[in-house]
Each structure stands twice: as C-alpha cells, then as structure tokens.
Computed example of a mutant assay.
Amino acid sequence: MNGSRRTALGTGTAVLTLVISALILAAPNAAAEPVDTGKGSGTQESGGSDSTGIYAAARIQYSGAVAKNGTAGNMTSSDVNWAPPPCWYAPYLGAKDFKKKMSENIDGQLNTPGMGGTAGAALGQLQRHYEDGYGWTDTPGYKDYNVEKDGKGMFWAAVENPDEPDILKRSSCNDLPFWVDNGEAPPPQYEEAITPKMLAALAYQHIELPDTKVTLAPKAVTKVNLPTWAWLDKAVFNEVKATAAINVPGFDIRATTTAKPVSLKLEPGTSDAETYPASGECTMNADHSIGEPYAKGKADRTPPCGLKYLRSSGDSTFKLKATITWKVTWTGTGGAGGKMPNGTFGTTQNITVQEIQSINH
C-alpha cells in the first residue's frame, strides 16, 4: 500500500497487508497447459489460474513461439539489469462478482477464530473501504462495492509473476484492489498496472528459440590445424515472435515481441584453438544467413566463420559452444513499441579433434 494509506491504517497495517495477501494473492499466476495451434512451432497458453480461480479475468494469453507448459523461455537478456515485471495489476472482477468474492472470503475463510482483535479491526476497515466509502487521501472508498457501476468497469488486483524467483519482489504489488472504468487508464499512482510494454517483457520471458546447432565441415570429427567451416542456414534461423495479451470486457491490450538473429559467437572449448574471425563473432550476411557453407574447391580458403583446433582432443572431446545473439523489438496496442535488450541463447556440441597421421618413408 502506498504512503497515506499506510499512515491511516496505523498499527493494523501489517495485519491488513497479510489479510490482503491471503485474499488477493491466494492464487498465483501459474500457467495453464499449452494448446497446439496446428501451425508448426506455434503454441498457445494462458497465464492465470483455472476458470474458477481468483485471476480468471486477468489471464494472460500467450501465442506464437512460447515455451511449453508455461515455463520461462530460453533467451537470456544481454542487459543484466533488465528483467520482466515481478508482479503487476490487472483486471480482476466486475463489481457484483467482486462483492460476492469479498463477502465469501471475509465472512467465511478469513473471519475465523484465532485471527485476534487487530486482524478483526483490519478486516473491518477493509469492509468499510468497499461498503461504506471509507478511504484515504489517494484512495477514495466505494459504496456497496461499486455495484451501481457493474458492467461499466472492473476492480483490478495484484498478480504475481510465477517465473520471478524472489518472493519479496513477487509480492511487492500489495495495494488493495481498485476500480477502473472501461476505456480508462488506471490511476497514475499504480505504476505496476499492466501495459503493452510489460506484456512485451513477459512475452520476451516466455519466447522459445530454436537450438543453436551450427553446421560444420568437417562435421563432428576434424583434424588438428585443419580449418573447420561453420554456418547457419537462413531458413532455419529466421525471426521468432511471441505475443502476450489480456482480453476482458472493456479492456484489451496485447504486445508482440520479435527476436531476429544478428550474430553467432563460437567458443571452441579450449584455449588451444583459433577462430575465424579472431573475435569468434560471425555477423549476419545480407541474405540473413551466418557464415558460408563449405563446398568443394574451398579447401585452401580461410572460412569467413569457423575455427581451427591446434591440438588433439585425445580420448575425449572439446565442447564447442555456439551462441546466437538476437535483436529484440516489440509492438503493442495503440501503436506502442520499441527496442528491448538483445537476447542470447547458446548450445554446445561435442567435437573430436584428431592428429593428422603421416607416413614416414
């Protein structure tokens, strides 16, 4: 809760916060099972509880290239200080449904023996806030849960990001549910109210990228001091899109996050190797491919993208790591959009390096 509301509640604030956490955050925003769209890699899933859960109205629908089973995607942000929102406020229930939910929880589950007088006082203030117009400087109260405006807006409530590992960050959206008229923006003090940009960040978090397995020539077995060519076919590494959307009566926003491959970095798995170019960073060609396929007659040429091992791997292998850097942008409702931090995703593959056998005469 913000400023004046903390002051007004005095000693009952901590208990009321716990009560609200139990009431509003009882059903975290867990993801549902994906639904196959029948379009190849495209999947579709909902972020939110089941249809009877507390966040049924605020479910986030993911579509496009998203990780299965609601898990976070496999792209790592190049900006260590950037992260998707740990929590947000989103449409929750209409006035009549909210009144029913609050009455059920306060009179049934929450108003139970053992909570003590302070808890009772906090619950009393909570009821007065929604029933009798009891409010604070920046948060006016409501009369009969705004039932007279039912169908003309919704109460918004906090939603936790289930992929945020820090429980304190996840539960930092702890304001009371607040009313927003259809077609209106949430009050400015609720900076964590869901926006297209936040949805784009959540789509970023759930985007699924193809495995970064480069084509090599020679393939998994090469020779000491023999240049190995590496490339990525443009047909395999194309742009990837993921969309996150919320659509409830009077409120419909969405954002699409697009990742485009821009470069490939090769790490040989040993210091006894050279890369081409020397930085190990192979940039994208004009035709959106990376590197150049090896073909007969190129044996005496230096590969534009590749590597050369300077010693044998012996009875073992070297782990070649290939990491793609993805340029990320987003577009959203109302013409919003912009750039997001580049993302990276890499995989490793085993490389056997043999000594070139020579015959002495």
Rank of each mutant, 00 (worst) to 15 (best):
Thr7Ser: 10
Leu16Asp: 11
Ile20Cys: 08
Glu33Gly: 03
Pro34Arg: 11
Ser41His: 11
Gly47His: 10
Gly53Trp: 13
Gly53Glu: 07
Ala56Ile: 01
Ser77Lys: 10
Val80Thr: 13
Val80Cys: 00
Trp88Asp: 04
Trp88Ala: 00
Tyr89Leu: 03
Ala90Phe: 01
Pro91Arg: 06
Met102Val: 09
Leu110Gly: 04
Thr112Asp: 05
Gly114Ile: 04
Gly116Met: 03
Gln125Pro: 00
Leu126Thr: 08
Arg128Phe: 09
His129Arg: 01
Glu131Gly: 01
Asp138Leu: 10
Lys143Gly: 05
Asn146Val: 00
Glu148Phe: 08
Glu160Gly: 09
Asn161Met: 02
Asp163Ile: 02
Leu168Arg: 08
Gly183Met: 03
Pro187Thr: 09
Pro187His: 10
Tyr190Ala: 00
Glu191Trp: 06
Met198Trp: 12
Ala200Gln: 11
Gln205Glu: 15
Leu209Arg: 02
Thr215Trp: 01
Val221Tyr: 12
Ala235Tyr: 14
Glu239Met: 01
Asp252Trp: 05
Arg254His: 15
Thr270Ser: 07
Ser271Gly: 05
Asp272Leu: 08
Ala273Asn: 09
Thr275Leu: 11
Tyr276Gly: 00
Ala278Met: 04
Gly280Trp: 13
Asn285Asp: 13
Asp300Gly: 00
Cys305Trp: 15
Leu307Met: 15
Gly314Gln: 04
Gly314Asn: 03
Trp330His: 03
Trp330Gln: 03
Asn342Thr: 01
Phe345Arg: 08
Gly346Asp: 11
Thr347Ala: 01
Ile356Gln: 09
His361Lys: 12
His361Ile: 07
